[in-house]
Design a protein around this nucleic acid. Structure first.
Lengths: 103, 103
DNA sequence: CGGGATCCCCATTGATACTG
DNA sequence: CAGTATCAATGGGGATCCCG
C-alpha cells in the first residue's frame, strides 16, 4: 500500500508518464521533440518535470557540444525498469477505450 | 502514446490508485474503511474520487439495507483488470525505495 | 455511517516573453 | 535550441459543519 504511493510520488504530476513514454519509445529524445510528442504540455512544465525525473534518477540528461546546444534525454536503467508498467498502462488504456465505447 | 493518456485520465488525481489498491486488497470495502486505508485523504475527496471511479466503471457501489446505512465498494471486472498494474507499481515502488536509499 | 454543502487557500499549470 | 522569468488564473484539495 505504502509502496504504491512511493511509486506514484515519483510519477506524480500530469505529464510524467507521457514524458517517460516518449523517451522510452525513442530511446533518446531531445527537449523539443518531447515537447511535440506530449500533447498540450508547455516548455515550462516539461522543463520542470524533466528536472524532477532527473532528481529521481529516472532520466539522464546529456548536453551535446553543438551549435546551438542540443540536449539529449534518455532513461536510466532505473527509469527503463518502468517499461513493463508503461506497456501495461498502454494495453489497459486500449482495452478501456473499447469498454467505454461499447457501453 | 495516446493509450497511456487514456489510462492516466481514468487514474488521475492524487488518490485513485491508492483507493483502488485498498478495495483490491480487501475485495469489498466500506467508505470509512477506505478513508482509514488511504492516508491523508478527506471524505470529500474520497467521495469525489469514488464517484469518478464508478462512472468509469472501475468500481461498483452497493448500499446495504442496515441501520445506519452501510455502503460496500468493490471492483468491477474491469477495475479488477488493473490488478497487474497495481502489483507492478507496488513492486516498482519497493525497488525504487531501495535504489534511493542506497544513493 | 456515508456522504453533501460551503468556504477558502495555495500549489499547479498556463501564456507569454525573454536569453545564452 | 533549450530552457528561465514573470504574471495570472483555475481548480484541486483541506477544514468544518450538516443531514438522512
Amino acid at each position: 500500500m505504502r509502496a504504491v504511493q512511493d511509486c506514484m510520488d515519483v510519477l506524480n504530476g500530469k505529464w510524467k508518464i507521457a514524458i517517460i513514454s516518449s523517451i522510452c519509445y525513442y530511446s533518446k529524445r531531445r527537449f523539443s521533440d518531447i515537447l511535440n510528442d506530449v500533447d498540450g504540455i508547455s516548455n515550462k512544465m516539461l522543463s520542470k518535470e524533466l528536472k524532477e525525473l532527473e532528481i529521481n534518477q529516472l532520466v539522464k540528461r546529456t548536453v551535446l557540444d553543438t551549435q546551438p546546444v542540443t540536449v539529449q534525454y534518455e532513461l536510466t536503467d532505473h527509469g527503463w525498469s518502468l517499461r513493463t508498467i508503461i506497456e501495461n498502462l498502454t494495453n489497459w488504456g486500449i482495452e478501456h477505450r473499447k469498454k467505454i465505447f461499447e457501453s
